[in-house]
Amino acid sequence: MILAKKDIKSMDGQKRIANKLLALFGLLIVVMILSLFLGRYSIRPDEVVRLFKGRMLLESYSDLKVAEHIIFDVRLPRVLIAALVGAGLSIVGASLQGIFQNPLVSPDILGVSSGAGFGAALGILLTSGAGLITAGLSFFFGLLSVLLTLSLVRVKEHSQTMSYILAGIIVTSVFTALTSLIKYVADTEDQLPSIIFWLMGSFANKNFDDLQLIIAPILIGILGLTALRWRLNILSLGDEEAFSLGINPKRIRIAAILFSTVITAACVMASGIIGWVGLVIPHICRQLFGVEHDTLLPTSSLLGASFMVIVDCAARNLTSAEIPIGILTALIGAPFFALIYSRMKGEV
């Protein structure tokens, strides 16, 4: 009898989580639609509705030519990219924090951001622009840096989390130094500013081509991590306990790291290095929805997407010159994190 009652209670729990996911999804949609209206060129909501209707009915309105261009070629791809990057970085943060049993881990722990950053800087140095070659080099070096980290770890037989983190620090410092070297030799008139702006992160001047480039790796990564989400709980107990619970911690960890790396490299390729999101969003979600990775991963990605769209909206609307988004995520993220941390009474 007692069991029967409790069963009903746990079913309620599942329903509650489904409701929360639905609410977060609704929030994301609302935020995305709102950010289509907002910008230097003001477009009225009814105009946006007309434009979308027009697209679906394959009609075009001569009075809204400029608005149509701004909505579909400028704002829509930008909002979608921001949402994808926010979702990607947040789910990676949540996953890696679980894998490394440490809530202070962020997506760049294994060196992927510094590697991808170096690749982009190299691309700008070689081609003097942020074209396809730069993006390709960025993605390639992002993947390469994590492979280097993993190969350093394999030297040690007992692959404990500490050796992953140390290997990540080694690889990060090498690529950071190489990036500095490129900055040093880059042309100060033209290349150096674009390297620096690129490294600060931005969604400016993104179009559907950029979206096409990142949508596959980020979605595949998110799906992969979501599929592994429950196993991450068990990894977070440590290798020996995971093994004693009958699973193979090494294999699942490598799979999760590879999915995370693909996502992060694609994010950096699309928008430069954007910090704090992958650290702060999982923390907020742990406070709101609990620590269990089954719910933490989907909630983190949805909330992360909304957060990034909002911050990007602020980045292009606060001042007439656009603020690099990496600066804003830190400026908003850090105080927010301090607030949560103090409310948690120091308990991480």
Binding site: S10, Q101, N102, P103, S236, I247, I252, R286, V291, E292
Partner: peptide, 21 residues
Amino acid sequence: FSFPYSVLDMVVFGRAKYMSV
């Protein structure tokens, strides 16, 4: 534990070996 799982969640982890990845 690094993350404060609920008691029920923790006990369900014992079922992992019977479940697919």
